[in-house]
Simulated scan of single mutants.
Amino acid sequence: MARPPMFQLATVTRIVKESVDARTFVLAPHDDPVSYRAGQFCTFRVPVDGTALFRSYSMSSAPETDAELMTTVKRVPGGKVSNWLLDNVTEGDEVEMSRAAAGRFCLRETDVPLVGYSGGSGITPILSLTKCALATTERRIRLLCADRDADSMIFEAVLTELAEQYPDRLEVVRHLDSDGGFLDATAIRDFVGADGHADHYLCGPEKFMEMVELALPGPGLVYSERFGAAAPVPDTSASTSPEPSGNTGAAESAGAAGNSASGEPAQGTVTIRLNRKKKSVPRKDGETLLESARRAGLTPPFSCEQGNCATCMAKVTEGSATLRQNDALTDDELDEGYVLTCQAVPDTESITVDYDQ
């Protein structure tokens, strides 16, 4: 059976100003309700200057507490998609979004405390997790939210209301860089206190998350939500794909996305079907299917290039491939032959991958 189209239209029914540079878009999908878990994200296809760009944004709603589907976007200097959305989309407009949510930044079944650390718009999926945990468990929740300044604080009213509703279970600590400088490892350990055994959830700029990860004393589990930087569509005259650049993700935070392949030519062929076109290129050792498709002169869909979203999803119809990373596809999808082409490296001499199925 053919897989349904990845994207559908959704009407923006409301826009909520969350801070000076962040907006929540309340969405009403046209075709199918989006089934999602707290902490997951959807991918959006946005036309900017005549080019379709793909970005993944976390849901700020939670299915257990919100009747409406909501995603929150923060403006980033130079961010093509975040700026386009905030500057152009108004209530009543339509956007294209994925039919299915993705991501594994979700709650596990446990009764240990939940401790969240957010930098800027990284609070978005952590708010979703907090809503879910408060509504469906008895877990104690503590959040450390770092923002640039008071005008940049996202979800201040929502989190204040939740803390008042659950005074014995929810603690929210706000840190403003403008007042106290950047958080450091000592501040993180002081905040953790006796909750080293908790489940720790991190989302924010890469340097912020690296600092928190290194500071955490353990032995609790650590969950980090990362959205890497997407590579530009290559020049079709180039023999290999270009170095990654650009911005993407929940906060559209910049960061390296995997290096382009420079593997040696190997025996075998990679065949790609995309938009009813079929192209083949010689297989290169270590090259992902996405890189092979670019080398073939095609412009396949992609977003995070880190295995976090399903934008580059395609089906292997002949041969097989190994995924370097997978934080998006379910076991059923893997069994059906679907792969994340940004992470899939062929392990057979020849392989055929179909983006149209």
Score class of each variant (00 low, 15 high):
29 P>F: 01
29 P>M: 05
90 T>S: 13
68 E>C: 10
73 V>A: 07
71 T>Y: 04
97 M>F: 01
55 R>P: 08
60 S>I: 10
37 R>Q: 04
31 D>S: 15
42 C>S: 11
69 L>V: 08
94 E>R: 13
90 T>D: 11
75 R>E: 15
88 N>E: 06
94 E>G: 14
61 S>V: 09
35 S>G: 09
37 R>Y: 08
54 F>K: 13
69 L>A: 02
52 A>I: 12
84 W>H: 02
75 R>P: 13
102 A>S: 07
63 P>D: 10
25 F>T: 13
83 N>H: 09
33 P>N: 09
98 S>N: 04
50 G>P: 07
47 P>A: 06
101 A>P: 05
87 D>N: 05
72 T>S: 05
46 V>H: 06
94 E>M: 12
48 V>S: 08
22 A>K: 10
71 T>R: 00
47 P>Y: 03
50 G>I: 06
68 E>S: 10
64 E>C: 14
47 P>N: 05
53 L>V: 09
68 E>G: 08
35 S>K: 13
33 P>D: 07
95 V>N: 03
78 G>W: 07
90 T>R: 09
82 S>Y: 01
95 V>Q: 01
74 K>E: 15
33 P>R: 08
95 V>S: 10
49 D>I: 11
31 D>P: 13
98 S>L: 03
49 D>M: 07
70 M>R: 12
22 A>C: 15
48 V>E: 08
79 G>T: 02
43 T>W: 00
69 L>M: 01
41 F>Q: 00
100 A>G: 11
48 V>T: 09
71 T>M: 05
84 W>D: 00
31 D>E: 15
84 W>S: 03
88 N>T: 12
94 E>A: 15
48 V>H: 10
65 T>P: 03
85 L>N: 09
96 E>W: 07
27 L>C: 09
65 T>E: 02
55 R>D: 08
35 S>L: 11
25 F>I: 15
98 S>E: 00
59 M>I: 05
34 V>Q: 01
27 L>G: 08
23 R>W: 06
92 G>Q: 05
86 L>V: 09
46 V>R: 03
86 L>Q: 09
95 V>Y: 01
53 L>D: 06
86 L>D: 10
45 R>T: 10
74 K>D: 14
66 D>N: 00
37 R>E: 00
58 S>H: 02
26 V>T: 11
27 L>V: 10
76 V>L: 13
95 V>A: 08
55 R>N: 12
84 W>C: 00
61 S>E: 04
72 T>Q: 05
36 Y>W: 02
